[in-house]
Simulated assay, not measured.
Amino acid sequence: MPAECPVLRERRGGHAPEVGAIELFFDLVYVFAVIQLSHFLLEHLTVVGVAETVVLFLAVWWGWNYTAWAMNWLNPENATVRALLALLMLFALGMAVALPSAFADEALLFATAYVLLQLVRSGFMVWACRGTQLGANYAKLLTWSALAGVVWIAGALADSDDRLWIWALAAVIDYAAPMARFAVPGFGTAPMPTWPLHSEHLAERNRLVFLIALGESILIMGFTLTDIELTAPVVAATVIGFAGLVLLWWNYFGYRITVERESDPEGARQTEIARSAFAYAHAVMVAGAIVLAVSIEQVTAHPLDHLDAPVVGCIAGGPVLYLVGNLIYIRARTGNLALSRVLVACLIVALAILALTTGIFTPIALAGATTLCMLGMAVYSSAIRAQVGVA
């Protein structure tokens, strides 16, 4: 990599580059995007609505994920890089603004903003890393993003009845690219070991975006409480929701990775591991935090109402999604299976089935039961100090 290029970070041995202030500034747009996604899901609690939310989330996440990876190499103190991130923020803001009507009147705004976010960033990286392996890699990534972009724009221009499946195809192309090693016929592939990476920088970026997703639950809780009467059931639901939020944080930050695959001196699999642990696993965990936010709003506003399938799905789905993502994360970084996560996820699924088939739970009761499951896992993990291969 050309060290004389001022837009690139200086590689300082094994030290991970610090997260720059401009990176944190960029993340502020995603506070708004996460709120928009949770509100979209809240207003579309149907099978189709959930599918639409998933597609929108995949685009929002991939835009953030590729930006976080690019900043592993870009110098956040450089004026050109800061201008780039400001432009990318504008595109991300366009996506976020369009989210509520992305499958209606704002489809073209959403798709155009997303495609520009992906193409401009990758194009900049091709220029910044010209003449290097990384530059060639980004050229292949740019090709895949352009291919997916054609499908995103086609979906925006298509009839609204066809938009979901077309955009789902576009998301598949985007997410399959790294698995296919960004292969371009006639130009070869970009294997993961050819992407030099400081995984700790990426880990810190993902920790911060997970906190953003958790913070969105706090906002929803606060807004909900200002609009309803603070009865005893509402207060109890608030306490349970807050406890569930804290436990999600506790279980995320309480599991210490003590032995990592990428600790080998060659780091041959470091980037491949980072792809699974951060690009994919954290997507599932952040999605879990978003669903948790929706369930907090539902339970707080209607703690004693009859439970229907969408509400059960949200109450159980948030923790289960988080646990699945956490399993992938731990498996990727250590090679071990966190059995406590498997057990608790199965227990929460069993509670959801019981709630749907018997009708013995109210929303607050099911939320309390799932929170107790997460509490048990937190206590267990803390008691054994999260020993890898045991927790």
Rank of each mutant, 00 (worst) to 15 (best):
A113D: 05
P363N: 08
T226A: 13
N326W: 06
A177H: 05
V55M: 08
T80M: 05
L74A: 03
F110A: 09
A183F: 15
A289R: 04
V320P: 00
A96C: 09
L307P: 00
G149N: 10
L230N: 03
T143C: 14
I328N: 04
G313W: 01
N326S: 15
Q387Y: 01
L141F: 10
Y66W: 10
N336Q: 11
Y255I: 12
E200A: 12
V60Y: 05
F91C: 15
P100S: 01
I315D: 08
A274M: 04
F361W: 10
I384R: 14
Y329E: 09
A203H: 10
E52V: 08
R269Y: 04
M221N: 14
A287T: 12
A83N: 14
W69P: 02
R261D: 06
V172E: 03
A332T: 04
W195K: 05
F253Q: 03
G131H: 10
A391Q: 02
A378Q: 01
I353C: 05
K140G: 11
F210K: 08
Y255W: 05
G14M: 08
T334Q: 00
L339K: 10
A107I: 05
A237K: 09
W64H: 11
G359I: 08
G14S: 07
V294C: 13
E266I: 13
R9K: 11
W152P: 00
C129R: 06
E43W: 02
A236T: 13
T300P: 06
L109M: 13
A274W: 07
W167I: 02
P319K: 06
V47A: 13
E52T: 06
L58C: 12
F26D: 02
A70G: 13
S38Y: 10
A237N: 06
T231V: 05
Q387E: 09
V184R: 07
V34L: 12
L90S: 14
I212W: 07
T238Y: 02
F32R: 06
G215Q: 08
Y255L: 13
P193L: 10
